[in-house]
Amino acid sequence: MISFGSDVRVFVATQPVDFRKGVHGLVGLIAEGLQGAPYSGDVFVFRSKRADRLKLLFFDGTGMILATKWLEGGKFSWPPIREGKMMLSATQLAMLPDGLSEWLKVAPRPTKKLITTA
């Protein structure tokens, strides 16, 4: 299991990608197609056309890490295909690779931001 802190930013490419793409192809897709910053430490999630595979790509400060998961049976639950990307919470990211469909229903609780004046 790969875990991230609660402050990690996670982006899902909502369009399926060609799963023959490796690290360099996905970095290019992040930079050009998703207008993201591949070396920022953000996590980028990619889906396959058959919805039974996913790839995670992130920079850990020393190099790029590419993780792939195939489900032996069934499919991952994905939102409808549309242009662009969507953002996930760390909790949603933890649920997604396990094949849990509930990740689509989990939403972070709203928090009040304290405003301090000096």
Rank of each mutant, 00 (worst) to 15 (best):
F76N: 05
P16L: 10
F59A: 00
A118I: 05
G41W: 04
D60Q: 04
F58N: 03
E83T: 09
E32S: 11
L71P: 12
K85H: 10
K105I: 04
R50N: 15
R50A: 14
W103H: 04
F44E: 01
W70P: 00
G28W: 08
G5L: 03
R53H: 12
A94G: 13
V106N: 13
G63D: 10
L57G: 01
F58P: 02
L114K: 15
S89R: 01
G74F: 02
L88F: 04
M95A: 09
M86S: 08
A31F: 08
D7L: 10
E32P: 04
T14I: 11
Y39A: 09
V43Y: 05
D18L: 06
F4M: 11
D60W: 03
Q35D: 09
S101C: 02
I65R: 11
A67H: 05
S48V: 05
E72C: 06
V8C: 06
G33E: 15
R50C: 15
M1Y: 12
A90I: 00
K75N: 14
D98K: 14
L54M: 15
R20N: 10
V43E: 10
G41Y: 03
E72S: 14
Y39G: 02
M86D: 05
A67Y: 03
S6I: 11
V23N: 03
A51L: 08
P16N: 11
L104E: 03
V27L: 15
A51G: 08
